[in-house]
Structure formats: structure tokens, C-alpha cells
Nucleic acid binder design. Structure first.
Lengths: 207, 207
DNA sequence: CGGTATCCTTTGCGATACTG
DNA sequence: CAGTATCGCAAAGGATACCG
């Protein structure tokens, strides 16, 4: 039984919250910011949410036009509608605002959450393309211009390849672990233009 | 017993939602966007929330540094911190996004919700200052430049004075009621530069 | 893989009453 | 006015099992 309570308030903010204000809803949207995703991947990324709950949220968001369930290549994927994608700048701004909230104890970090973190916290610099492998899944991170972009999938000709896990990457971004330490004990493996990666991490360390 | 559950996710979005993601939390922030408010006013504006719930939310938001409870002039007021005020652009963007959500049935409109609606939906035009009286409370609305601003309190030298109620103003903004009809049956009273007010309403009617 | 179905616990939340 | 206290319930949501 999907949730369907309303604030019964004509204000746009209240109406928006009627649609994406339920628990987990905006995190589902966050997961889909990188592109269409399968149910099983969403489950893995949103580890705290039960399958039942995830189904409810997906149904509600679909019923409200935030996402669509589409079959392509034999598998079902959930994909943001154009309207749903318009939440992206809002979510990124909210993510920036939330950086000031103390880190939760024992964070259960997932790949996409730390990559959104990366996108929010890192500053763009020279044009560099990264192949970022986290827990076996591969992403493309690009710096350059005035943005840091993150997409799922491998880049064509990466300048740097990084293989690590979400917790280590988060520690590196937060400055809790030094890159050299993580390199020497094998938690992270970097090939290619290592200094570029080092610079990327440094930009995340602003106060 | 205030809520203190966490997504346990280091992502800034999740951390932000740990703080302002509970039900009613962002609407409390919305109420405070116009300035410090008293408990009783918040209760009136957020009619759907019980006193108990409102207390919980205020305590949580205070504990998390979004607002402060301050005694001034003999009365307690809740006031956004600087960090809390940084939610303003995010909330306004969310409100714009939410305009595409169908209006809830039988909306229980409050003064501030319709004024936020007004601010989000109206387009700035020539410099005009309005004295807006809704249910006995007075606000200042200004157009000009590239923004529509709304503040509590009466303006010094208003160009237009409007007296009505939130539901009628909302109907006028939504185009559900024509200004002339509302004027003739007394639901709204306008003195001063009536055409300016008519134009303001028209700008809200974009598709 | 992509969900449903069922059960059960928790708790958010509403209603009401009460207090300094 | 500005909340606190108590009660009680519907409902959200976690756990587990199951199914096409």
C-alpha cells in the first residue's frame, strides 16, 4: 500500500514534498541521477531500505511522474522523467548544504553516495578523465570547465584509473586517510596520472 | 521524544535529509523564511500539525543548528540560523518544481503558504509596493528588479493595498476566480493602483 | 533477477487534557 | 501564551519467506 498522505497545502514546497517528501524518496531520485537503474542495483545502493519499501517508493514516484519503469534490452530499469531530472540541481544544492552535518557514526557507504559526495565536494580543475572502479563497478569521472561530472560506465581513454572501495574513497575525500598510506597498503590502486588524482582529492579538502 | 533516525550515509544529501527530512521539518523552515516567528503563529500556519509534533520538530531543528529559540521583547521566537537561511534558495527551487504537482483537494491554505506561492509564481515587473492583508495579518510585497519579495509587516508608502483571505488570493493567482468577480462580491478589496495588482496576478498565470 | 506476500514491531502522530 | 503529559491507534516500515 503506497503512501498517499498530503499536506493539503497549495504552496509549491508542500506540493513538492507531497511527492518527494516521504522517507527514502529523494535518495531513490539521487540514485537515478546517474542514469536508469535496475531494481537490484537500487537495493544494493540503498542498503538500509527493505525491498518492500523500495517497491512502494518506486511505485509512488512513478505514479507521480517523477520516474518511469521502462523495459530495454530485456531488463526493467527505472529512469527519471524530464521533470524528475529537474530535481538534480536542487539535490546537489541540498547535498552541499548537508556537508555541514556531522558524519553519521559507522557510515554504510555505497558507491553512488560517495560519488555524489565527490561531485559535490571536489572542485573542477584541468581536463582529466578518470576511470573509477568501486567494488567492481566502473564509473567515469571528468574534471574540466567548471564542473565535475560523474557517469556510470568506463571512459574511452582515461587519464587515470583508480580502483578502490567506497569507504576508502570517502576517507580520502574527507582527509581521514592519506593517499600514500592507502596506496601502500593496497586499499587503493592508481595507474596513469597519479598527481592529477592527488590534486582532485586535495580540492575536496577545503574547510 | 524527538526523532533521531539516520540514513547512515555519508552523502551530503542523505545527511541533509537526516536533519530536515522528517515530516513537517521543511515546512517549519518555510514558515521561518519570512523571519522569526512565535510558537502560536507557527501552529496557526501549520494547521495540520499537532502542538506535540511541532514541538518535536522545533527541538530537533534547534538541536541540529537549523534554528534558534530566542527571547526578545518578552516573547520567545524561533529564528533560522545563518545555516538555516541557506535553505532558502533550495526551498524556493523546490517550490518551483512542485508547482507542477496537481493541487491537493480542498487545500487548507494559510497566509504564508499562499505568499510563498505568490513569490514563486509571480514575475517581477515595474517597481510596485503592495500592502497585503490576509486574515488580518499584514505583509509587504514588492515587485521590481528581477525578484518578487515578501516580508511580514506593513510598508511605509504602499502603491496598492489589498485585503483578502488566503483562499481567495490563491484562487486569483491560480486563475480560478476573476479579479472583477472577487472585487464585486467583496472577497477582495483593492485600493490604489488596481491595474498593477491586476498585472501581478496575470504574471502568475503562465501555463 | 525482480519483485510480492505475510507477519509483526515500532513509532510517528493525532487527540485531548493539563500546567506554569 | 507556550508548551508538556498521557494515551492510543493507524500506519510505516523491517524481516523473512516466497514466487514467476
Amino acid at each position: 500500500v503506497p503512501t498517499s498522505r498530503s499536506y493539503r497545502d497549495a504552496c509549491g514546497i508542500a506540493r513538492a514534498l507531497d511527492v518527494v517528501g516521504e522517507r527514502w524518496a529523494l535518495l531513490v531520485v539521487r540514485e537515478l541521477l546517474f542514469g536508469p537503474q535496475r531494481f537490484s542495483v537500487l537495493r544494493k545502493e540503498l542498503a538500509g531500505a527493505s525491498s518492500n519499501l523500495l517497491t512502494d517508493r518506486l511505485r509512488e514516484l512513478e505514479a507521480n511522474g517523477v520516474l518511469v519503469r521502462r523495459r530495454a534490452g530485456g531488463v526493467w530499469r527505472y529512469e527519471l522523467t524530464e521533470w524528475g531530472r529537474e530535481l538534480e540541481p536542487i539535490l546537489l544544492a541540498l547535498g552541499g548544504w548537508g556537508l555541514r552535518v556531522p558524519l553519521p557514526a559507522g557510515p554504510a557507504l555505497t558507491a553512488s553516495s560517495v560519488l555524489i559526495f565527490l561531485r559535490g565536494v571536489a572542485r573542477p580543475g584541468p581536463d582529466v578523465t578518470y576511470r573509477m572502479e568501486l567494488d567492481g563497478r566502473v564509473w567515469t569521472v571528468r574534471t574540466g570547465g567548471d564542473e565535475v561530472s560523474v557517469e556510470p560506465g568506463a571512459p574511452a581513454g582515461p587519464d587515470v584509473s583508480v580502483r578502490t572501495d567506497p569507504v576508502t574513497l570517502n576517507d580520502l575525500l574527507a582527509g581521514a586517510v592519506a593517499l600514500d598510506d592507502a596506496l601502500s597498503d593496497g586499499r587503493v590502486a592508481v595507474t596513469g596520472r597519479v598527481p592529477a588524482f592527488r590534486r582532485l582529492l586535495r580540492t575536496a579538502l577545503r574547510p
